[in-house]
Design a protein around this nucleic acid. Structure first.
Lengths: 224, 224
DNA sequence: TTCTTCATGTAATTAGTTACATGATTGA
DNA sequence: TCAATCATGTAACTAATTACATGAAGAA
């Protein structure tokens, strides 16, 4: 994170650029950063709150942000503002062409994967867990969308946030659909044993997946 | 990771249980663990290879696995095998009801989110990146599925791996569909400015998402 | 024989989380 | 005025990655 890249400029990691971006969007105090994290960033760039108190210090030390120290009663507060050099750095980063691949981390899926070593209830529970999470997220998304539809989308960012909204919405719709499907698949199972019938069904599942994709021309593969 | 939980037993983290599960599935050397990681686990529990050389040591030190030291020529090799206590620990873990939520980490989406500060080309590139990744994963999934359809699904695990396969398949189909949709949305854009027209379209996108969900009864929300 | 890939591991470093402490503000 | 929540931060710890080193096996 503090090494130099080819240009002799500081090489930041994506988390640092995430903070820089939030500063560019107008966030000032570390607490405001945590609010943005809870509201939006956590869905595709989750980080602990303490990180958000630490990260801006690095940006300030590199001259990408300016820190001003105030106090609220007896307590200190640091306000950060992105600097012109910070804005350039953000733009430069957005212009780079290599992007880290999406990573998914799911303990529930891990438990499904090892489902053979547990009980059928454990397996159902793992799938149920995915469903519950997806539904909670969809409720959250619904409330955000309704709020925007009533009060208007954010005038500076609406066009962009609609893109990420659709991503997260589709992701959670997919999760819920998968969980519903999975529960249905398991509906007749009294245990997790590998029976011949279940192996046949497994093959059928694979065939269906491949067939669906072949039967849907790329041009029709879009939400909406 | 090395603290005790209420039962006075070692509290392992999910990564440790992941390794324990792979040992239960028959993996023995650290290299075999890396192979499993590359083939399957990386899609929902990605970890660096070096981790897989270190983690089993912990399991062995807790009596959950047995380590035997061999040599291949002049080099050492450690074989691990899950122990009866390890099998119990795995089952106990599968039986616990709290599961960490799914986490998604996407630098591409982060760049979309901050897209307003870059160029339209940057924004297109980020979306394109998602599409390329999804297509690569779908090709990989296709080859796996075809292999299984020709040679038969793994007799002990086919019924379980069909569930996770379907998850990852749907996820990548969703990614590709979103990217295709996104590129279409951007097709008329020459810049990333927040125009009134784009704000209207943003609201329409939100309305569409909500409407789709209302119009699809939960019973129909399933793949296949 | 030499190059490449397979295979085995350690060391150094970085990134991140959890736990903790405590003042300010607001509402009952 | 008391409790709950908002807000600000640090310290300790844990988890993970990257870089490195090198031998074994197989192919050209």
């Amino acid at each position: 994170m503090s090494r130099l890249n080819e240009d002799g400029r500081e090489a930041l990691n994506s988390s640092a650029y995430a903070i820089l971006g939030l500063l560019a969007m107008g966030a000032q105090s570390a607490y405001e950063l945590t609010r943005q994290m809870e509201r939006t960033l956590r869905f595709f760039w989750p980080r602990a709150a303490s990180k958000l108190y630490e990260a801006p210090k690095l940006l300030a030390s590199l001259g990408l942000a300016r820190a001003t120290h105030e106090s609220v009663g007896r307590r200190p507060r640091t306000r950060y503002q992105i600097s012109p050099r910070g804005e350039e750095a953000l733009q430069r980063w957005l212009g780079t062409r290599t992007i880290a691949p999406i990573e998914l981390e799911s303990e529930a899926l891990l438990r499904v994967w090892f489902g053979r070593f547990g009980t059928i209830e454990d397996l159902r529970n793992a799938i149920q867990n995915v469903q519950a999470q997806a539904q909670a997220n969809l409720r959250w998304g619904t409330s955000i969308a309704q709020e925007y539809l009533v009060e208007g989308v954010p005038p500076e960012r609406g066009h962009i946030s609609a893109l990420t909204f659709r991503f997260l919405w589709d992701f959670n719709v997919m999760l819920e659909a998968w969980a519903t499907w999975g529960q249905r698949e398991l509906s007749g199972w009294g245990d997790v044993e590998p029976t011949a019938e279940r192996m046949d069904r497994a093959a059928a599942i694979l065939r269906e997946a491949l067939a669906e994709r072949l039967s849907t021309p790329p041009s029709e593969r879009s939400p909406g």
